[in-house]
Write a protein that binds this DNA or RNA. Structure first.
Length: 216
DNA sequence: CTTTGGATCGTCT
DNA sequence: GACGATCCAAAGG
């Protein structure tokens, strides 16, 4: 491992911050997703703590954009892990995923909510609606708007030290028992409890799951 | 508080 | 030609 990785630092955040290594993302989305809770999403000077994610399991998952094989939109998901898959939602919003799984296996973890930590004024300026901090990025479209992620970021490497967008850990461990429900806004494979959240966090998305709710 | 409908367009059928 | 891995404002109880 590159020693520089463990001494990487996010300016305004207190404490040691290291980049997430690609090997940590090589597993199935369902397994990796809960481990990304409490990690940091860094976009320039904006930092948010990931508090809600969803897993999409590629070829095995009718709800995944990759279910029917590679297309011009979903190509990044079929590449190596650690890259960002960004797509346009409802013609209006952007949504961002962390690609996991090895090349050819189109696993992806949708980033659904972050707790704003730094660069909050920039997030606020990027959002049309002025709300409490917790509402700045508590939904996949809001997250991209607040953090400044758009279609031009599709495919960027989240594990690259010099990248504008990166995934980091600051020593806060993922929750031992993450909350989970079915996924939000999908019409197929509604029953899979693949939405994961930091328990009792005020900043998770307000959206209601598509299927019957399971654990909380 | 909850429910509903409009915006808006790339992607895939 | 239809449909979203959404968000928000407005209307209804």
């Amino acid at each position: 491992m590159d020693p520089a990785d463990v001494t990487d630092r996010v300016d305004v955040t207190v404490g040691a911050v290291r980049a997430v290594r690609r090997a940590e993302l090589s597993g199935a989305a369902v397994d990796v997703a809960p481990t990304l809770l409490n990690s940091l999403l860094v976009v320039g000077d904006r930092v948010g703590r990931i508090i809600e994610v969803e897993a999409y399991a590629g070829a095995e998952d009718p709800a995944s954009h990759a279910f029917r094989g590679p297309t011009s939109r979903n190509g990044v998901m079929f590449g190596p892990p650690g890259h960002l898959y960004v797509y346009r939602s409802y013609g209006i919003h952007w949504c961002a995923n962390v690609v996991t799984g090895n090349a050819g296996d189109a696993q992806a973890v949708l980033l659904r909510a972050v707790e704003p930590l730094t660069g909050i004024e920039h997030m606020r300026a990027a959002r049309a609606v002025l709300d409490r901090d917790a509402d700045l990025a508590n939904g996949p479209g809001k997250l991209c708007q607040a953090m400044g992620i758009s279609g031009t970021d599709d495919g960027v490497d989240l594990c690259h030290r010099a990248g504008r967008i990166r995934l980091c850990r600051d020593g806060v461990a993922p929750p031992e028992h993450p909350a989970s429900t079915t996924r939000v806004g999908i019409s197929r494979a509604r029953d899979r409890p693949w939405r994961f959240m930091v328990p009792d966090h005020a900043g998770v998305s307000r959206a209601r799951p598509s299927g019957a709710e399971r654990s909380t």
